[in-house]
Design a protein around this nucleic acid. Structure first.
Lengths: 220, 220
DNA sequence: TGCTGTCTGTGACATTGTCACAGAGTCGTG
DNA sequence: CACGACTCTGTGACAATGTCACAGACAGCA
């Protein structure tokens, strides 16, 4: 059982046996219930986290209470906000929430530093985590600064929709995804409904014309 | 002379003599004129850059031609966009421009990888570069998504002003700093002028009431 | 049933973005 | 100097988005 998690990270599973054994011995698999706060402003992280299962949502909260989702970390990825805190003690104005129940590997600070020095593969995992996050953040900047809201909303609806084409969410939650206000989302959804592209009910958006939404999502 | 640059990075200068010598031997000091494109979408980097002198501006350009400044890299810092390209071959939609003439240390890919493995201090420099950039990007998101434009403009004017209180820039350039449109900047400046906080002339903004601008910049 | 809290809808207004111009400053050149 | 070419700035009309103050609708529960 102690060996199982490392198989999710092929690069790590391929480490020299000694390093691999050390890592497995010193890391702990932790479980967190849905809704847990993984990190928050002012809370310093003690462990480096590799997410095994579940999804972490990282978002920013403004002074006025508005929120915006920055990115999500899924199984197989490193949660690099904690890393940053580990390495440079900077406080971020972001918080990480467990959107689902989480299983993750917690690697203590010292082991993390050791592994960084000893394992090129471990470094690659950490760096590519950073790299992906920077990429995500630049994408957010680009969207917020330059994209129309109807397009962004269509994108999110498509991304959040289950296979049946339903999105179980409130207008408030969608507004937090996009960094805008609830009323604005309400009006945008109303317009999409008027065009026959979605059907609205309390706490739910049903996508009734995916093709049109996709066209909108990809529009210039 | 070959030894001089490393003194700008105390962490590196303090490396074990062997490593330090290897680094100095394999890295090259390069000079770039003002206006050089350090990196651009689609251009893959071959070297890791440590900026010695000068300033690099990293900005994003939208399809519609609007721009937004993401952050600046100054002397003593690592230019981590190039790093990312080095490590994960991801293409970013950002470009880096030399705002001033630049002197930088270019470290070849292989040496960079070696140093990452052998030197905790080198790792710290690289990681803290990443960390700072993530911090910068989150700050940009926060500003663009949640802050009023007059406040952001006041912040930029104060940041860009020389000691005499002059900002030599066009409305277009200010708009690119903030990710907005020229006309909007023009109107905002007009309003600041009406209040007597700035004086406008072609290609220049003179800050005539710093205290008021600072109050605006710090307003909620 | 009535109460309570959440979710949604709406109108009025402020702020910001877009578009299509026009006017004014600067510079080189004849 | 006169002229054109170019950049920089100003403006009005309108569209899109954000803010505020509500009111109504819905769900769960005593």
């Amino acid at each position: 059982m102690t060996e199982s998690w490392i198989e999710r990270f092929p690069d790590l599973a391929a480490l020299p046996p000694a390093e691999r054994a050390a890592l497995v011995a010193r890391a702990a698999v932790v479980s967190l219930p849905e809704g847990s706060v993984i990190f928050a402003p002012g809370k310093e992280a003690e462990n480096f986290l590799l997410v095994l299962e579940g999804r972490v949502r990282v978002q920013q909260v403004s002074a006025s209470g508005r929120e915006i989702v920055l990115y999500r970390v899924s199984g197989g990825e490193a949660c690099i906000m904690t890393t940053s805190c580990l390495l440079s003690h900077e406080a971020y104005a972001a918080e990480g929430l467990a959107e689902t129940a989480i299983r993750a590997v917690a690697i203590p600070r010292a082991t993390f530093q050791d592994m960084l020095g000893s394992s090129p593969d471990f470094r690659r995992i950490v760096f590519s985590g950073y790299s992906n996050r920077i990429s995500d953040l630049m994408h957010v900047v680009e969207e917020v600064a330059f994209q129309r809201l109807d397009k962004r909303l269509a994108q999110r609806l498509l991304a959040l929709a289950g296979p049946g084409g339903d999105v179980a969410t409130t207008h408030q939650e969608l507004a937090a995804e996009l960094g805008t206000a609830r009323e604005v989302v309400g009006r945008q959804l109303k317009e999409l409904e008027r065009r026959g592209w979605v059907a609205l009910s309390r706490g739910q958006v049903r996508l009734s014309d995916r093709a049109s939404l996709e066209a909108l999502a990809q529009a210039e």
